[in-house]
Amino acid sequence: MLELDEKFFERFGVEYSPNEIIFCEYEPGNEFYFIQKGKVRIVKIINDREKTIDVLEEGDVFGEMSILEEEPRSATAIAGSHVRVLKFHRDNFDALLQGNPQLAYKLLLIFSKRIYDAKRRLMILLLDEPSVKVMDVLIMLAEQNPHFDFEGEISLTTNAQQVASWSGMAEAQVQKELTQLARVDKIELFDDHIVVKNIRDFQRIVTSRRKNMYS
């Protein structure tokens, strides 16, 4: 966590009540936020339904795309609890970096991770076959846990809905693919987790499909 003094919070600190909008999708964005306390839901209205795409916590940054230039917000941020954030306008950014190099470093870490996650997701989305997409989401989820042993069975805390959102597929289709994989004994399906029997096998399949895509 960042060490920030009280004065800093007095100047940039803002509090939100549960369910209050912090910013709204498509609103021009000029500030980015650093969560000091509480949870923030990131949602989008998709097909006239509100969909939660992420839940951020203490220490997380959001709205960071406005660091460079004004751009409409790509999602809505809603306080998921009583929330305390530090709110920084782009114009203060330089001064902020000078005064708080730790924050600057933290932002670098966050951007690095976001870029990787976005690229990784793009790789999944670019695959053609639904079954391979589903496999690659499972691989990606496995990659996120550095403690997994890829030579053995891997238990992933996930469900069809989450896989659907990563793969850009309909949940029903994902369910169908998962059922098929379970039928051929590649995975086992549970309410709140999925066991992958041989993730190396999935990796081989996905890598070979990915190579073929460009040849």
Binding site: M65, I115, A118
Partner: peptide
């Protein structure tokens, strides 16, 4: 950091 953030931010937008 500022330069790196600029580069990263552009990459993120592109992706």
């Amino acid at each position: 950091v500022r330069k790196m953030l600029r580069v990263f931010s552009n990459q993120l937008r592109r992706i």
